[in-house]
Amino acid sequence: MNERDSFLRRLRSGLWGLPRSAIDDIIADYEGHFDAGRAAGRSDADVAASLGDPARLARELRAEAGLRRWEDERSLTAALGVIVGIIGLAALDLFVVLPVLVSVVSTLFAFLLLGLVTALGGGLMLPFAFITNLPGFAGDRLQAGLLSLGVMSGGAALTALCILFTIGLVNLLVRYGRAHYRLIARGSNAPLRD
């Protein structure tokens, strides 16, 4: 197997998980590059070495695809794609960012859960005016209903706040990711041309 095939194979395997049309498009770009290199009288080995590491290229292309998807659709899977893509970039300062990220995300998740449970609890209590039966509750049914309503909307507000915060956080991550694209170095055995 020659260098051209092995470069394209490694690139393709690195792009695994992207939509098929996107992969074909990317591969076609690099095939065209090899063709143009041949036409210019360069060997496949020379072209492959000048292109740089296909695994690194694939990581960057994948990360960018993930960030794009988030910008197109604000869904949970797209948000996960951003996080996976950024971890794939494996920037050095990720070791600093990752613990912070993990604690922020877990706190956020806890608050989100709390908000959901509160909203659900308030909603369940509302129709039954359940609290009037609790010992120590002196109010009438109307007060109980209003209290349940208050709890429910409080929970819903907390949930909404958490979602807004999550969107902001992922947007921040997108900027972090973009700042960590690198110039992919030419291979070590690539000849320098002027």
């Binding site: 990317i26 143009a36 960018e64 291979g187």
Partner: peptide
């Protein structure tokens, strides 16, 4: 211009891997 041409002209001037150009062009 086409990818190979852009890459080969810039890689000499900026000393980068030619492969860098394609993610950039897509972006």
């Amino acid at each position: 211009s086409y990818g190979y041409d852009i890459a080969s002209r810039l890689s000499a001037a900026i000393d980068m891997g030619e492969g860098t150009i394609y993610p950039l062009m897509r972006r």
